[in-house]
Simulated assay, not measured.
Amino acid sequence: MLSRTADHLFWMSRYTERAENTARMLDVNYQTSLLPQSQAVAQVGWQGLLSISELLYTYQEKYGDIQAREVMDFMVKDESNPSSIMSCLSAARENARAVRGALTTEVWETQNTTWLEVKRMIKTGEFEKDPAQFFEWVKFRSHLSRGVTVGTMLMDEALFFMRMGTFLERADNTARLVDVKFHAVQSDFFGAASEKDQEYDFYHWSAILRSVSGFEVYRKVYRDVIKPERVAELLILKPDMPRSLHASLNEVVNNLRLVASDPGSETLRRAGKLRAELQFGRIDEILATGLHAYLTQFLDRVNDLGAHISREYLVPVT
């Protein structure tokens, strides 16, 4: 397969996944902002969302003070923001259009219809009327895109690069989410908390789990109250949690093996090493050494892995 074709397929999937992840984070922040809380606490939530995407400085340059409505506008329809939902869906559609011949009709029509429909929804003000419904729609279109891809694409290199892009993006986003949200906890992480703090923590951790469709999964796996260390374990180390770091790296490695011409390539070695550390890691060891330091290093290594994939298989970023 031509590296340029692989590049378009890889980034089409990454941008689609990024749009979904942005919608998930916005939805959770929007829902929790409706709960009784001080303005300062609400502002921390919106600031954290911008920090996850490393867009806090860019936002403040353009809008100044953090306001919920302006943050949502910035992250949904501001096309000058490359991580906004509009920008991501536009980029996904453009990448799909560039390799139309490598896609099935169903995959192309799903991408194209999503872009046309989101433009209509923004223009008619449907996002402002019901943000929660809009975010659900974005998530649904991403689910549809993945389902159509798996259900109609030939199981060849095109599909493998698309899957690789999806799960590399997912690993990056989950790591950012866990890192920022754990920092946002106001009560003592492991110590005793007041009744008010415990109530806040329940909604806080529930929101994190819901943002990755993990609330019901947590209940099924642990059958206990929500505890921070278990949330971290679920989202980092559990291979059967679909949006965990471990599950995402499993998919990246598996698809990388299918396209690798050299089983001993440096790219595959780095991916395998990162996956092995998740496979044999323990949450108590991660927390003992520092969750923030661990996730910062993980993000650096994921970005490095993405760069190696680009250099070896795709169109290198100059």
Rank of each mutant, 00 (worst) to 15 (best):
M75C: 15
L295P: 10
F280E: 12
D179G: 00
K220Y: 05
A98D: 02
S194K: 05
T267F: 08
R243M: 04
S83P: 01
I66V: 13
Q279N: 13
K119T: 06
L274M: 13
R311P: 00
Q111G: 06
V41R: 14
L50E: 09
N254V: 09
E233N: 14
L159G: 01
I122Q: 13
Y30W: 14
L177V: 06
F215M: 11
M75F: 10
P82T: 04
K220R: 14
V180I: 15
S265T: 14
P82N: 02
T152A: 05
A42T: 15
T22V: 12
I208E: 02
I122M: 15
A271T: 10
A6M: 01
H8L: 00
R270H: 10
D179Q: 02
L249Q: 11
Q279P: 07
G214Y: 10
E169I: 01
T318Y: 09
S38W: 14
R243S: 06
H8K: 10
T267D: 09
M72D: 07
A207F: 05
S84Q: 10
G147Y: 03
T32P: 00
M86I: 04
K129G: 04
L154S: 07
W115Q: 01
Y218R: 01
D156Y: 05
D172Y: 09
F215L: 15
N112S: 10
N250A: 05
V185N: 01
Q133E: 10
S206P: 02
F10T: 05
F134G: 14
N250C: 13
